[in-house]
């Protein structure tokens, strides 16, 4: 996948949150915590996978609206 600056930044940020939540943990387990964080996003994606409509291309093509206000 293409280099993704924001993805990296996102992990760093979430890492800070993780520090607060697991406060007693000494710094240095950065990698472990990053893995935990990406597991968190992965588990969210897994849950979304289960409910996403099948055949995304047809589904979004079929969503046609008339204009409103």
């Amino acid at each position: 996948m293409a280099a993704d600056e924001r993805g990296g930044q996102q992990h760093a940020n979430r890492d800070k949150q993780e520090v607060e939540e697991t406060a007693p943990e000494a710094s240095g387990d950065l990698q472990e915590r990053q893995e935990k964080l990406s597991e968190d996003v992965d588990s969210m994606l897994d849950e979304i996978d289960e409910v996403l409509e099948a055949n995304s291309e047809d589904f979004v093509r079929g969503f046609v609206q008339k204009g409103g206000q």
Partner: peptide
């Protein structure tokens, strides 16, 4: 965040 997660995991553009 969700979209970036998908892009990263599944290599989507």
């Amino acid at each position: 965040e969700i979209l970036q997660g998908y892009r990263k995991r599944d290599g989507l553009d």
